[in-house]
């Protein structure tokens, strides 16, 4: 019984959201607002059970790890952002988060996105594909080099870089389209199969 009600509610909400294809309407707005509320509630509950409880509440109040008072205070300081008069207090916690993210990304991006990618591009030129790949990487990088005007040889190479980038964007776009279409097929299967029972 509960499952049947659940499927009906899910089906109606699915139709409410699809009604936006006709035009913006109260049913869509209802589903949209409910979605935002439910999503936010989902994340709060998820964080409470998976972050606050095992990383803060239990160690601090049950295991006596008093040092955790510091992130608790910094976290509460961040929430002070909601009150404009004392909002500046949140800077300390924001500074901590920004510092930790900057330090972490500085190393990981340098390692995985720069050094490792350059290393992977150091290929021998015995295969035509390797030549195309290396030329593509170099010309793409030259396109991102803005310290000199893109003229002459530099301009021509940058143009070649754009072509490689356009192929990459096209491939990504193709994948995005397919992902969205597969989600649409999933919703249609739900409506026609789980809800109406027309698919077997």
């Amino acid at each position: 019984m509960a499952d049947t009600i659940g499927i009906w509610v899910a089906a109606l909400l699915t139709l409410f959201i699809f009604s936006f294809l006709y035009k913006d309407n109260p049913l869509y707005k209802m589903a949209e607002h409910l979605f935002i509320g439910v999503s936010a509630g989902y994340w709060v509950s998820y964080l409470y059970q998976n972050v606050f409880k095992p990383n803060l509440y239990n160690p601090l109040f049950h295991q006596g790890k008093l040092l955790l008072i510091i992130p608790l205070i910094l976290g509460l300081m961040m929430v002070m952002r909601l009150f404009p008069k004392i909002g500046w207090i949140s800077r300390w916690s924001i500074a901590f988060i920004v510092g930790i993210t900057s330090g972490y990304y500085l190393i990981t991006y340098l390692q995985t996105n720069a050094v490792d990618q350059v290393r992977a591009s150091l290929l021998n030129f015995s295969q035509i594909n390797n030549i195309i790949l290396v030329v593509g990487v170099l010309s793409g990088l030259i396109y991102f080099f803005f310290s000199a005007e893109h003229r002459g040889v530099l301009g021509g190479t940058a143009k070649l870089g754009i072509w490689f980038l356009m192929v990459a964007f096209g491939a990504s776009f193709g994948y995005t389209v397919m992902a969205r279409i597969s989600l649409l097929i999933g919703r249609m299967q739900f409506l026609l199969g789980d809800w109406l029972g027309l698919l077997h």
Binding site: Y105, L106, Y109, L110, T112, N113, A114, Q117, V118, A120, S121, N129, I132, L133, V134, V135, G136, V137, L138, S139, G140, L141, Y143, F144, G161, F164, L165, M166, V167, A168, F169, A171, S172
Partner: peptide
């Protein structure tokens, strides 16, 4: 091949920017 080349150029560019 061409997609990896393009993505790799973007990744290296982003990495330099992030650093």
């Amino acid at each position: 091949v061409p997609n990896t080349a393009g993505q790799r150029a973007i990744m290296i560019g982003i990495a330099l920017g992030v650093v």
